[in-house]
C-alpha cells in the first residue's frame, strides 16, 4: 500500500510547481485559476486574491482608475473521473477594458492590470483595472 501511494505520488510529480506551464498553457487553467492571461502568478484553490498585469507595454499610469468585473461559479474538484479539475458552470459580467475605462471616466488607457479572487474552489471574481486619463 505504501509502495502504491509512493508510486501514485511520483506519478503526480509532473504537476508539482506546474512544470511545463510554458509548453502546456492550459495546465494553469485546468489546475487552478480558471483564467487565461498573459501573466498568471501561482494561484491558490482555496483562496486567492492576486493582481497581475494584462499589459506590460505602457510607460505611465495616468491619473484615473476604473474597474470592471466578471464572475464565475462552479463545482469544486472531486476525486471522480472527469471532475478532478472541477466543473465550470456559470460565468457572467463585463470585465472589458471598455467597461473599466467607462467606469473610471478614462478616455486614454495607459495601463491594464487584473485582479483575480478565488473563494473556496467554487466562486471566482475577475476584475479588470484600467489606468489612464
Amino acid at each position: 500500500m505504501l509502495a502504491r501511494s509512493i508510486a501514485a505520488l511520483l506519478a503526480s510529480i509532473p504537476l508539482l510547481g506546474c512544470v511545463g506551464a510554458g509548453s502546456r498553457p492550459d495546465m494553469a487553467y485546468r489546475m487552478a485559476a480558471k483564467v487565461r492571461a498573459p501573466v498568471i502568478p501561482p494561484q491558490g484553490l482555496l483562496y486567492s486574491d492576486i493582481k497581475a498585469p494584462v499589459t506590460a507595454g505602457g510607460t505611465d499610469f495616468g491619473t484615473r482608475r476604473g474597474t470592471a468585473t466578471s464572475f464565475q461559479i462552479g463545482l469544486p474538484p472531486l476525486p471522480v473521473a472527469g471532475l478532478a479539475s472541477g466543473l465550470d458552470l456559470f460565468a457572467w459580467g463585463d470585465a472589458s477594458s471598455e467597461a473599466a475605462a467607462a467606469a473610471g471616466g478614462i478616455q486614454q488607457v495607459d495601463h491594464v492590470d487584473y485582479r483575480l479572487e478565488v473563494f473556496l474552489f467554487v466562486y471566482r471574481r475577475f476584475t479588470t483595472e484600467v489606468y489612464g486619463d
Binding site: G44, S48, D49, I50, K51, A52, P53
Partner: peptide
C-alpha cells in the same frame, strides 16, 4: 504574489503595484 501549498495565494504582482 505568494502561494502556499497551492491552496492559498495572496499578493499584488501588478505592474502598477
Amino acid at each position: 504574489v505568494v502561494a502556499v501549498l497551492g491552496l492559498v495565494s495572496t499578493g499584488d504582482a501588478s505592474v502598477r503595484g
